[in-house]
Nucleic acid binder design. Structure first.
Lengths: 183, 183
DNA sequence: TCCAGGCGTCAACACGTGTTGGCCTACAGT
DNA sequence: ACTGTAGGCCAACACGTGTTGACGCCTGGA
């Protein structure tokens, strides 16, 4: 079959995202990705040069945290939880990152910097507790990532069947306390 | 050098635990483990038969949850958090399990069954809410595993520098609410 | 002293991996 | 119709992996 170059590239990228999300960096092989995309492994190299660069392209990511200044103070926790659930389900990028960060120092560093660059400022602004903003952000991250780990990666059945609203109701106050309780 | 068979076996097991904890199942190679133990890779096979069986031996695990019936009702959350911190730091087994469960369905299943077999009954007994015990246990697991993920695996600096007591103070009430709040 | 059996090493196999280079072929521009 | 080029495939390389079997050597018991 014959295609435009960019179509093939997109096809590869889609297959790569699925494989990386399902298997993590190591177990996702170029050959499997190529097979999913219906092309030859060498095409992957042609378009992306290297497995590492393919991963970088597949794992491009932005948390897209909303502006929280217009949210009522008491709803910050729930809003954050709801946003993360959305962000986690819109595409597979966070699963890719988490599955890989656990055994790959470079990707772990990437996760750390994503959270410190985007979540710490929120915690600082909301809590007014600039001294402990990093701790507060880390605590919030621990609950949010833990939920995602159990729900999307380990697939604990009881967490999988809970509705979005249930999760927001349970986790909202927790994140609220971490991020916004008075110093 | 010459040794008793059991000494060598123990040596291999210790090296394996370190490697599995540091690198996860896939990246920890038999050759590297053998090198750490100062012996030939084939000895590993002789003593454990298979990489998978070596892993099974290295990842043998018991949560060792304490009896909570003698703990004052309000302290259950803090007690659980403190126990998990201990359990997590006494040896590397939980890190091994977590690092591997993320990309290995069999080990993920093992974690699920560990938590459902040991944490669900606690949640049921403490909360009296038998209908939602599985959800409560899963929520508690999400916070506890999330903390461990961020502290021991992703190594978020701010979580790493927090003291045991700080963590108990922050997470205790959360786990308390998950596991013991009235239905 | 001898020797059987267990502790240990070496070298190799079979396989899967990322990666490379050469070749084919359909199509667009002349 | 001719041809250059871009999209695609094939075969192979180099390497690291788990795993195996043959071979030495030390040591404890007869």
């Amino acid at each position: 079959m014959r295609r435009r170059s960019e179509d093939t590239k997109a096809l590869i990228l889609a297959a790569a995202r699925e494989r990386f999300a399902a298997d993590g960096y190591d177990r996702a092989t170029i050959r499997a990705i190529a097979a999913d995309a219906g092309i030859d492994p060498s095409m992957v190299m042609r378009y992306f040069g290297t497995k590492e660069r393919l991963f970088a392209a597949a794992a491009e990511f932005d948390l897209e945290l909303p502006d929280l200044t217009s949210v009522p103070g008491d709803d910050v926790g729930a809003t954050l939880v709801a946003h993360f659930l959305d962000r986690w389900e819109r595409d597979e990028t966070l699963v890719i990152l988490l599955r890989t960060a656990v055994t790959n120092e470079a990707v772990a560093e990437r996760m750390r910097s994503i959270f410190s660059a985007q979540l710490v400022p929120v915690a600082a602004k909301i809590s007014g507790d600039h001294a402990a903003a990093r701790k507060r952000a880390a605590l919030a991250a621990s609950q949010i990532l833990g939920m995602a780990l159990c729900r999307y990666v380990l697939a604990l059945p009881s967490l999988g069947t809970m509705t979005r609203q249930e999760l927001v109701d349970w986790l909202g106050p927790v994140v609220q306390r971490y991020v916004a309780s008075p110093a």
